[in-house]
Amino acid sequence: MTPEVEVLSLSSHPLLFLAAMLVKIGVVFGVVLFIVAYATWVERKVIGHMQTRLGPMRTFWHGLLQPIADGMKLFFKEDIVPSQADKVSYILAPMMILVPSLITVAIIPFGADLQIGNYIIPLQVAELNIGVLYILAMAGLGVYGTVLAGWSSNSKYSLIGGVRASAQMVSYELSAGLAIVAVFMLSETLSTRGIVDAQSASVLHWYVFKQPLAFCLFVVCGLAEINRTPFDMPEAESELVSGFCTEYSSMKYALFFMAEYANMIVISAIAATLFLGGWSGPTPFGAVNLLGKVFAFMFFFIWLRATFPRVRYDQLMYLGWKIFLPLALANIVITGFVVVLVN
């Protein structure tokens, strides 16, 4: 009698399940933090070369140890809490901004199923049948960190930064969310694994070809949602000094810094999963596919930063509500008609 192959779960084999889970979490967490650290190095290098400079060169070969040096430096800086600040939320804010972006990574599938003995282990930290909703929920949580940071610092620049951030994130989340709606209308599932499977047949099945508008909307709105140039309004340094993180120092500031890069990774990974087939193509190695796409997106974001000036706040809101939102809605309507007609 051959034992039946089944998906590993807590009930089927608790020990193996826990072990597999810990390994997956460790690997994903480690990889993300590593990319966060080295994204800062890559950003400085890439922008440096685009601007006819060299970027960091002094710490080890071509400045490879720069992220570690930066981390050490920030770690030994004095941790200042302004006397007029609201202590609890001041300390809570940097965590609230970093944690949602890190846990969003949990639902990104990064490879085909693994078979150990009679058990199938999905290469994904958590398989959720409402994965896409989870992404939107976590993105919504991230706003609180920014708002709290801006408000609790009790500084006017921080406050304006925080207010800008909340308005910007809320309005762009809407358009980004509506852009994703068109995707799961086609895939008919909310699970990220299911969406990847629906695109896995060939490169031509990627949703970027079926939903080019949604893809562009999602990338631009994603950019706005994570406050990257040209939408880096909340921390516009030439206007608001440093926006919501003006008053932060030491490791708390480092957390904001990490969150920015973690957010970049998350948006890249989501865009890759939803529109570019995630891990499923074009090479046979799942993790390589996913990482390649993530890096391509991040390079694109860095490139934008080196090229574009900053959009003004009112123009940003205009863009979000009067252009992107109607476009996203129209896209949904058109997709609906096409889906009905094809079926």
Partner: peptide
């Protein structure tokens, strides 16, 4: 000031 960093360096 308007955010175009590269022009500055050039």
């Amino acid at each position: 000031d308007i955010g175009a960093m590269t022009v500055f360096i050039y």
